[in-house]
Simulated assay, not measured.
Amino acid sequence: MLDTLTLSTFGAFHTLIALVAVACGIAALVRHGEIATASRSGLAYVVLTVATSVTGLFIFRHGGFGAPHALAILTLVVLAVAYVAEKRGRTGGLARYVAVLGYSLTLFFHLIPGLTETGTRLPLGSPAFSSPEDPLLKALVGVGFVVYLAGAAWQVLRIRRSSRIPVGVAAR
Rank of each mutant, 00 (worst) to 15 (best):
Y97I: 11
V156L: 12
T75C: 11
G114Y: 08
V156E: 06
L136A: 14
L115G: 05
K138H: 12
L57I: 12
R88S: 12
P135F: 02
R31N: 10
P132I: 12
G125W: 04
L122F: 14
L74V: 13
T55E: 03
R61V: 15
L140H: 06
T118S: 13
W154V: 14
I112G: 01
T91W: 11
T37N: 00
F58N: 07
A139C: 03
H110A: 15
V81W: 00
W154C: 11
G25I: 02
V78G: 04
P127N: 06
P127W: 10
D134K: 06
R88Y: 06
T116Y: 05
T52A: 13
Y148A: 01
A28H: 02
G119W: 02
Q155H: 05
S104F: 13
P68I: 07
G125L: 05
H110T: 14
K138P: 01
T37Q: 12
T116H: 04
V30M: 12
R40V: 12
A44W: 08
A28M: 05
A82Y: 09
A27W: 10
D134W: 09
L74W: 09
R96T: 09
V81Y: 04
H110G: 01
Q155V: 09
G42K: 01
G93L: 02
G66P: 03
F65L: 11
P68H: 00
T120V: 15
A36E: 09
D134H: 08
P68W: 01
E86A: 14
T52Y: 03
G92I: 08
T37R: 15
V77H: 06
P132Q: 12
L105W: 12
L48Q: 04
L105D: 00
L107G: 09
C24N: 11
V77T: 09
S53M: 10
G63H: 05
L79F: 12
S130P: 05
G142Y: 05
F145A: 11
V156T: 15
L48T: 03
L122D: 01
V81C: 04
I73D: 02
A85F: 08
L76Y: 03
P113I: 08
E34F: 08
V98D: 03
G102N: 05
A99E: 00
A150V: 15
T75N: 12
G151H: 07
S41W: 13
A21G: 14
G151P: 07
V47L: 13
T106P: 08
V78C: 10
G66R: 08
A70F: 11
L29A: 04
A150I: 15
L79K: 05
G151E: 04
T75K: 02
V156M: 14
L29P: 03
K87Q: 14
Y83M: 14
K138E: 10
L107Q: 07
V50C: 13
A44K: 02
L71K: 11
L101D: 00
G151A: 13
A152K: 08
F60G: 02
L111I: 10
E117I: 09
F108E: 03
V98L: 10
L122N: 03
Y97M: 04
G25A: 02
A27T: 13
V30L: 15
H110S: 14
A67D: 07
G92R: 08
L111H: 01
G92Y: 07
